[in-house]
Design a protein around this nucleic acid. Structure first.
Lengths: 346, 346
DNA sequence: GAAACCGTTGTTATCGATCACACCTTACCG
DNA sequence: CGGTAAGGTGTGATCGATAACAACGGTTTC
């Protein structure tokens, strides 16, 4: 049920509307509308008169009226999760930028938890605004599966790790490939095996990175050390790092993200184990700061902005195709290994 | 001039509208509207019938129509700058959360550069959407001064460092106070003076931090070392750090933000100067990672989320007061010193 | 010379809500 | 018992745009 606002006595001051422009230009409002919509059959001289009138009156077309008449709002919705983090924030940025370029407006709805109810709630708010499509930042499958519940004629795209669900179009990076890149890099340097500090067990992205890491070790016939998934935080990296630091056989560690790596670096430092001389470390994400860690972090770069742009591209495709059937296309982007100084031969 | 979208043949499927609900409930559309708007004079039994009809039809009120009729959109606009950074991203989050709680929708428009033209452009896009108010993330004065150009009846609030301008309501943190906190902390530890790695010279926030730092040194009759403002980046901190590291008289350094501090820490480490034994370092911002730097960074915390919430509060006040005159209230939030291990007695 | 057509323009209905006002009960009062 | 007030409900106009169609002068076509 939509909220009702407290009354604001003063309404927005009535700016100029199409009638005013029409009167000033000496034409009908419909002609003004034609100029506005680039209709071909308007005489150049008439068009010029109208345009000048619009300029004089500082006319701005009323989107609400247009939406009502056309049943198209020119607005896209984003369902965001943990948007204070660098990754989601960058996706958001990429989406907005691309949307603006395509002439769309962007409305956002954040969710506290990536569960079905919150997502449906957010989607509802967006639908009320007549958005023409929704992009959901979807770290967990619950998000995309919730998207299946929204009216099937509404274009939807999921972006992020939790987009396994086949019913919804999605863009994601290839987490397993990224993990393979990192692991193989360390093996190639000559490490006997690679330890892994994983992300939380219930996150698909964390699972996929474990998968990629594990399969690479298998292929190389290397020992597969145990993992103890906890969270994505530097704290967790620090704590697990303290344990690993005690084990002299550990020479290479791949972290599921850069925050974990940061915590790990601190733990190794405190334990007196130098990086990369004694232990090599590789992260995942490539945050802006990662190049300035001590030592600068070798990591797997996700191009979040590109992720955002691509998802917007897919959404527009769906909208403009308007087949009515929802696309279920999945796009997998390849991450890139950024080698810095935290990794070296043993 | 608004962009026109390529035609999407298929329009949104017509969901149920007020007429449908009215028919099913056996009342007039006006009565449905009354129920929707909590009008007192509806018999309980009628209200119940209407509500049940709405539920059966999964009715959702059309915001565009409502906006057209009431001239109120229930939407607020945000003009964002560098929203991928932790600070702006957190403000955005705080705003959205508070807006949702207050029953408002949020639409966003980002700008590439914080200059007059870009801001007016963004404001224009928001005005087209009939937003009832605008919050601008305003790192530079050009932003708020641009806000003065938007119709005076539209509520506006600036948030951030560039909000000196007296014509616009604003929320900001007290940068000078933060700098004093940091500088005094270092002096209190027993350092003879404090060096400063500043932010870029054309940013008010950087200037205010310089001011706070300098005035504290004056008051303590300490030597005021020169500053060489460059950028906000870790790279800049690294480069300036390399210079400072060579000077054995330098024992305490206050950085204008945590990124600079990160770069500095690396430079000090590479120069073999230990922190905090030989050199103390204090940052500004308190990013989530700062507690895991090597060593954990003493820093000045800005509560960005709170900044966002407060700015939204002020905006709502303006909207709901609707005095027509724009508020010019300024709110200054106090930052907080977070002491970790990067600072110690010389 | 009538019919068909074109480019250009105006007229009227429409989108889905709210608002102002009219209408009908019922109740209460003098 | 009639008049007024108040509660509950319906009717029609309205917000500002677009859509559909009609109208008009001037060709072109048969």
């Amino acid at each position: 049920m939509p909220a009702n606002h407290p009354p604001a006595e003063q309404v927005q001051p009535r700016g100029s509307v199409m009638r005013d422009v029409a009167r000033l230009a000496g034409v009908s409002h419909q002609t003004v509308s034609r100029v506005l919509n680039d209709h071909p059959s308007v005489r150049d001289e008439t068009r010029a008169r109208v345009l000048s009138a619009m300029q004089q009156l500082n006319y701005r077309r009323n989107l609400a009226a247009r939406t009502l008449a056309t049943r198209r709002s020119g607005t896209l919705g984003i369902i965001g999760f943990e948007t204070t983090l660098f990754g989601p924030a960058s996706m958001l940025y990429g989406i907005e930028e691309a949307a603006r370029a395509a002439g769309y407006f962007v409305s956002i709805a954040t969710v506290q938890r990536p569960d079905r109810k919150s997502v449906l709630d957010a989607a509802d708010r967006l639908i009320q605004q007549s958005v023409e499509g929704i992009i959901a930042i979807a770290p967990k499958p619950a998000v995309t599966s919730a998207l299946l519940q929204v009216p099937a004629t509404l274009a939807c795209v999921g972006v992020g790790g939790g987009t396994d669900d086949d019913g919804v179009a999605a863009v994601r990076i290839d987490n397993a490939a990224g993990a393979r890149l990192a692991t193989q890099h360390l093996l190639d340097l000559g490490h006997a095996t690679v330890h892994h500090i994983a992300g939380p067990a219930d996150w698909p992205e964390a699972q996929e990175r474990i998968e990629g890491w594990r399969s690479t070790l298998y292929a190389a016939r290397a020992v597969v050390p145990p993992v103890a998934p906890q969270s994505w935080s530097a704290k967790s990296g620090y704590e697990q790092g303290q344990v690993l630091a005690k084990d002299p056989s550990v020479t290479a560690i791949f972290c599921a993200n850069d925050h974990l790596a940061l915590g790990l670096l601190r733990a190794l430092h405190e334990a007196g184990r130098s990086v990369p001389q004694e232990v090599s470390v590789v992260g995942f994400d490539d945050m802006p700061e990662s190049g300035y860690f001590l030592p600068p972090l070798t990591t797997v770069r996700q191009n979040f902005t590109e992720l955002g742009r691509r998802s917007l591209g897919m959404l527009l495709e769906q909208i403009e195709l308007a087949s009515g059937v929802r696309s279920t296309e999945h796009v997998l982007l390849n991450p890139e290994l950024i080698v810095r100084t935290s990794s070296a031969a043993p």
